[in-house]
Design a protein around this nucleic acid. Sequence first.
DNA 1: GGCTGTTATGTTTACGTAAACATTTGATGG
DNA 2: CCATCAAATGTTTACGTAAACATAACAGCC
Lengths: 369, 369
Amino acid sequence: MDTAEGAARAREAGTRNRRGGRVPTASMADVARLAGVSSQTVSRVSNGYAGVTEETRRQVLAAMKELGYRPNSAARALKRGEFRTIGVITFSLATTGNVRTLEAIATSAAGEGYAVTLLPVAVPTQDEVRGAFSRLEELAVDAVIVIMEVHLLDAASLTLPPHVQVVVVDSDADDHYTVVDTDQAGGTRAAVRHLLDLGHDTVWHLAGPEGSFAAQRRTDAWRHTLTEAGRTPPPLVRGDWSAESGHRAGLELAARPECTAVFAANDQMALGLLRALHERGRRVPEDVSVIGFDDIPEAGSFLPPLTTVHQDFAEVGRLCVQAVLRKMREAGPERGTTLVPTRLVTRASTAPPPERTGPAPDVWGDPPA
Amino acid sequence: MDTAEGAARAREAGTRNRRGGRVPTASMADVARLAGVSSQTVSRVSNGYAGVTEETRRQVLAAMKELGYRPNSAARALKRGEFRTIGVITFSLATTGNVRTLEAIATSAAGEGYAVTLLPVAVPTQDEVRGAFSRLEELAVDAVIVIMEVHLLDAASLTLPPHVQVVVVDSDADDHYTVVDTDQAGGTRAAVRHLLDLGHDTVWHLAGPEGSFAAQRRTDAWRHTLTEAGRTPPPLVRGDWSAESGHRAGLELAARPECTAVFAANDQMALGLLRALHERGRRVPEDVSVIGFDDIPEAGSFLPPLTTVHQDFAEVGRLCVQAVLRKMREAGPERGTTLVPTRLVTRASTAPPPERTGPAPDVWGDPPA
DNA sequence: GGCTGTTATGTTTACGTAAACATTTGATGG
DNA sequence: CCATCAAATGTTTACGTAAACATAACAGCC
């Protein structure tokens, strides 16, 4: 299983491309010639059509193998009018959510016989975005999934080829696009209620960056859940998703003794927050409860293990692919939003608030410092 | 400039796809007809060739715009014999390293006018790998970058189209492939020496999974650096890159009072290790020093902030793209390894060992457990 | 004024595949 | 034994682009 095959491969495929000559790939015509049939018959075998004698089929397959024949996907795409490829546009792969979603998309797409082409937009400047999309315009893609706030996309005056379908994650543009997303509001509500149920008067919020729809949605839901419960939302503290920003925010929050519960908009910021609280001597969860969002794999290893909202990224990715393929096949300009439910994962970073006010009035009251 | 044109466009490009009919995209011929030139002239304008009158060019561009013309990349690829696409094969995007490398590859490739197609291999079973590669065989790709131990690739009896060049990350197969990788050995040596220089007798190692070349390399270098310094390597503790596995290993290590310094093969495992040590009441860095590998963005927010080996993933990705494009252009079967240097980032998780043996002999000796 | 050379543009062709149509072969039935 | 039909295979054509080649127009020159 080595020498013979190796030699055949070297001969046919011309591994010995020493002199830099482009080695021609065998085409259907070559296979047909060797097998003594027409190229159409080769095509039929290649595509698994019925109506080919077993005998013929075997001959063709043998010829294919000998020549190392591979269908030329460019020619196929040209002929069929489709590329069997889905493009994914995203800002950086720095955030867990984007990556996990991307991975699920790629896996789902592969299952459907589609490839995934990545279109990263490095810096969110107008120019960058515009550049990426002008590249996209002539990209070999049948459909596009956009993982970012879609208004940035409009800002780039994106024009896609007419038959390219679009599905969007992390956006609220469900009046213009098909949107698949995590149920941000539901997850947030679960997190905030969990803290209120534990007895906290109110819940502080460490928000994500303003540009992100997901962040916006979580902030809105946080505020809504609090007012719904008759509590006053404390001032908003803003981060940028990074642990470092969580740390900065945490130093601020640690200075406020009235802050006993914090809902961080993602786990990374919660991590930084935990460090800041620790540095300031505020114990978690005894003095302050912290809850995150995402349930990254490391969340269970934080100090203390983080209570957080679990997102089903795999499901989001799968639904994206399903939706975009359905749109392609039915050519329907379907719109609207599909939400993927979340699940609260309770670990060790949340607890009832420290005894402060309540039944026992002023036994050893807080030192006013 | 509206009714006539609008009608023309509707006729040509058929924007009115109400009835689900596939909308034909305008071709060069359409543009040529509208502009009153030959399709070859349209091609010249499209590809920016000189030798077209400014007047003609303007007319063609106007016609393109009116018809919403987009070059058909399938036809282009067929004609040119290349796809301007690089395929990236990787096991899951769960590890930071893979993701960051992928991102850098995508960015670099875009800069060179290449798209990146993702080929995830979900589960590392023989079948999965084989399946992925049989898909790859007919993938529209000019070159491939493999981010995984390449022997898995051989196991799948991979046959690539002859002119597809391959570059590999995380592998030692530099006698068969072009390899670009982080300088695992150098980074490990820096980490281990840092701990020895602080005065630790020896350094324990929390290794990555056996299948990973990077893990293997780090383990080898750890052992080598220790013996080189005349120390005896303690028994190996193995993890699987996850924080959870680091936690398990940490519980073991915490039980050994002689363990004062641990080199974890990545930051996630270091995180779990930190938690385990904390749970067991062993202070970091006073009792035990911990050092990681990768320098993930969160490492600075661990408790305590983690000393770790910084990897330049962006550079690895960039070099991969460069190497693969060079191989394509020069058609040289270039081999060998390019190493990207690392940098030790000193934070708060490492310190000299606790006073134990040394000048003061047996003042309060260790309780024998 | 015709020759040469240059520049702008047009025409032909081929890339590899697969649909549509055409032909051949062999079997079945009257 | 030929008409009929189905199955297997062959032939033609078109997909959209761009290289190669062909032509036209015009300027410069002796």
